[in-house]
């Protein structure tokens, strides 16, 4: 299938992201990258687990974390994962406008998550929990901050795709790009599940 072919709902393949060699390569390459990211985040988690008691006189996890805020942030991110699934569902149905809509909702929810996190970090800094304070602080900010940076990058990525392709609709050149961006977005949620469990929930019970 030629990559810039004008397709219709009937001729659009069932798995458009894998209908070209380039698409297959991107699909596989990205999953492999996620395997590597798993190890990257595991190293960050492992270090956090080793250092989470070393507060060097600064505030501890139990004193700092606000569960209601974390819960709301979690709900936002989890819902954004679902909305990105919706977007890909519409992509497979060759419904470009609905796909854009649901990616847009995803971006809004993701931005909400990021906003809450920035607010949260601000509060912590006011309470004396700064990166340079202790090993706990350094490892907390690096782990949760790296995740946040991934969220920010993901938002930029999806917005760029949406704007770039707004005028030309779906084809076999951009379908893999949208698919891979959504895989990335799901992975960010996977990491967050472990962050809220290991950092926040375990932070409250010790």
């Amino acid at each position: 299938m030629h990559v810039e072919e004008k397709l219709t709902a009937e001729t659009f393949p069932a798995s458009p992201e894998k209908a070209t060699l380039e698409g297959k390569n991107k699909f596989l390459g990205f999953w492999l990258f996620l395997g590597g990211e798993t190890v990257l985040f595991a190293s960050l988690f492992a270090t956090y687990l080793a250092l989470r008691d070393k507060t060097a006189g600064g505030p501890s996890a139990e004193e700092l974390f606000r569960m209601p805020l974390v819960f709301v942030a979690t709900m936002l991110l989890l819902t954004s994962s679902l909305t990105s699934v919706y977007a890909i569902y519409h992509m497979k149905n060759f419904d470009f406008k609905k796909m854009q809509l649901w990616f847009g909702v995803t971006v809004l929810l993701g931005a909400g998550f990021l906003g809450l996190e920035i607010f949260e970090f601000n509060e912590y800094v006011r309470e004396g929990h700064v990166f340079t304070k202790s090993a706990f602080a350094s490892s907390f900010y690096t782990l949760v901050g790296t995740h946040g940076a991934h969220v920010a990058f993901g938002l930029l990525w999806i917005v760029t795709l949406m704007i770039r392709n707004a005028k030309r609709g779906l084809n076999l050149y951009n379908a893999p790009k949208f698919y891979v961006a959504s895989l990335y977005w799901h992975f960010i949620d996977v990491v967050w599940v472990f962050i809220f469990t290991v950092v926040y929930l375990m932070g409250m019970v010790g």
Binding site: L51, K54, T55, K133, S134, A135, T142
Partner: peptide
């Protein structure tokens, strides 16, 4: 940062 520095834990 304080990852490897014992003084900071």
């Amino acid at each position: 940062g304080n990852f490897y520095n014992p003084a900071g834990g």
